[in-house]
């Protein structure tokens, strides 16, 4: 698809600003999100290409603004719901619970 992910040749996205160094995971959640790819791939049922396509279908503004592993989270969400491992209702409820400090 001709989505926001297909970036080759685009102008206006700003400087690269490579830092002198950075940790592999900048925050703990990035490591968990990274590890969940292997953790979910083994049971969920998605293919790597399907996972990539779910990222491509993200809201374009969110795609550009979100940290990298947030792309993976969107794809996990889509695939886990699609394959019936979780429902969007139980995920929403769990997000609310965590956001309110309940867990």
């Amino acid at each position: 698809m001709n989505g926001i992910h297909d970036l080759g040749g685009m102008h206006g996205l700003g400087p690269i600003n490579p830092p002198a160094s950075e940790p592999v995971f900048r925050e703990p959640w990035e490591g968990r999100a990274f590890a969940m790819f292997a953790g979910t791939f083994v049971f969920c049922g998605y293919t790597v290409d399907e996972f990539r396509h779910e990222i491509e279908k993200m809201d374009p503004a969110h795609y550009l603004e979100a940290p990298y592993y947030a792309h993976w989270l969107e794809a996990f969400k889509a695939c886990l719901i699609k394959y019936g491992h979780i429902t969007s209702d139980e995920l929403d409820a769990r997000i609310k619970l965590i956001a309110s400090g309940g867990q």
């Binding site: 968990r32 969940m36 996990f76 139980e90 965590i98």
Partner: peptide, 20 residues
């Protein structure tokens, strides 16, 4: 926590409870 941190914990905790 930032939104992705909450989302990560939500997914991980659900999948852990389900034994996945």
């Amino acid at each position: 926590e930032s939104d992705p941190a909450i989302l990560t914990r939500a997914i991980e905790s659900l999948l852990t409870e389900k034994g996945l």
